[in-house]
Write a protein that binds this DNA or RNA. Structure first.
Lengths: 157, 157
DNA sequence: CGGGATCCCGCCTGATACTG
DNA sequence: CAGTATCAGGCGGGATCCCG
């Protein structure tokens, strides 16, 4: 993999040139200027990279993607497998992922309704990255547990 | 801090007793490649993997770790670089990361006070993973922007 | 079954004041 | 500078009802 879209070698400033960059909320018309040297990614709020990062680095999105990476799932199946998610958040998350082109939603015109969710090719490219995160978590589980215990012990005294 | 040391489950009520969900039924190969069977990672709410994942897959945590991965930073520097974070959330995030053993907090007994934050060796092991996520985001920026535009166009009609 | 609409509570932000 | 304490306000997200 390469370093993304960075091209100009010399410039590293990017403190906070201005606001510009669009609103921080989710609804935002793409195509607005927001491109700057991302090599020094101090990533201002509302910028595309931050928007996407906020989506991908979201607990629900991550879990949904990881599950869909195994196989196509229906709404209720996802609801059951993503333990703890509310129906609303599952809907919202899936819609966002669909909008981002990471998940394809297929409605079968049958009764009772049947809707399948699956990763798009783009979404599938997240596999390695997400899996790496999950693997890291599993591998370092005990170390973190220890660190927490130590911290709490220190705090309590 | 009014939220206590251990993040109270609050809205994501932990219904299950936090018993070990890494029940040893899926031994994985820690090393390289995702060659272990990822098709079976049980992620019940409240289990350790989920707790850690929820922390690591958090927008603020991710940004803070990524920044500290470049160099040691002081509180105010972080506040300035992580655009959009409130002082409270920065404090909370840093405390969580410190508790998890990912970040080391060093208080220098000088006046005015000086507190440095840096990644621990454990935290540093997240570098590749986090960087992969950031890189992925940068690489696929335009594709996602297109997907969003297409989706919005479809919706509006 | 899938999901839109609604109510509602608690977290987060932002502003401000106060310590060490 | 690096926080902690507090209050206001917005909204994210859970729970529930209900319809196609």
């Amino acid at each position: 993999m390469e370093e993304g879209t960075s091209k100009s070698p010399g410039h590293t400033g990017v403190t906070h040139p201005a606001q510009a960059c669009g609103d921080g909320t989710h609804g935002h018309a793409p195509g607005e200027g927001c491109d700057y040297d991302a090599r020094q990614w101090d990533v201002r709020e509302g910028c595309e990279v931050r928007q996407i990062l906020d989506r991908v680095a979201d607990k629900w999105s991550l879990l949904v993607i990881a599950l869909l990476d195994r196989r196509t799932l229906r709404f209720t199946e996802l609801r059951r497998e993503v333990d703890g998610i509310s129906q609303r958040m599952l809907t919202v998350t899936l819609r966002q992922l669909e909008r981002d082109g990471l998940v394809r939603r297929t409605v079968h015109p049958v009764v009772p309704p049947r809707v399948d969710y699956e990763l798009t090719p783009l979404g599938a490219t997240l596999h390695d990255t997400i899996q790496a995160l999950v693997t890291w978590t599993e591998v370092h589980q005990s170390e973190i547990a220890e660190a927490r215990a130590a911290y709490d012990r220190r705090e309590r005294e």
